[in-house]
Amino acid sequence: MNDAQAVPREQPVILAADDDEDILALVAFRLERSGYTVLQARDGQEAFELARSEKPDLAVLDVMMPKLDGFELTRRLRAEEATSRMPIILLTARAQDTDVAQGFDAGADDYLRKPFSPQELRTRVQAILGRR
């Protein structure tokens, strides 16, 4: 888990970022119901700032976001010490093979295509967080 934490958390914190309000609300709902605290961001810039200040345990990021897209955001998070090992799941409609490759190249841990299953997302989140 994160060593640099002042206060131990009861629930893992997940950062969800998507400019699509429908998806954001749904992901937040599903993950909160599964026992996580969810921080919501509506664009890449907001997501980056939240990630740096709150240091979540995992991030679920859309790729096609304004201000900072998911790939670039992933690269930046990897470049920062505090977030470099934060697990990142990309959740996106950009699903060509080149996009997937680009996602992993940028440093993502997992890549989920839209349309997606919320159950599937939860399973993957649990798998990643359970491992740590």
Binding site: I23, L26, P115, F116, S117, P118
Partner: peptide, 9 residues
């Protein structure tokens, strides 16, 4: 949501 989700939805 029908367009954006798959599975049990």
């Amino acid at each position: 949501y029908a367009r954006k989700l798959t599975g049990d939805a």
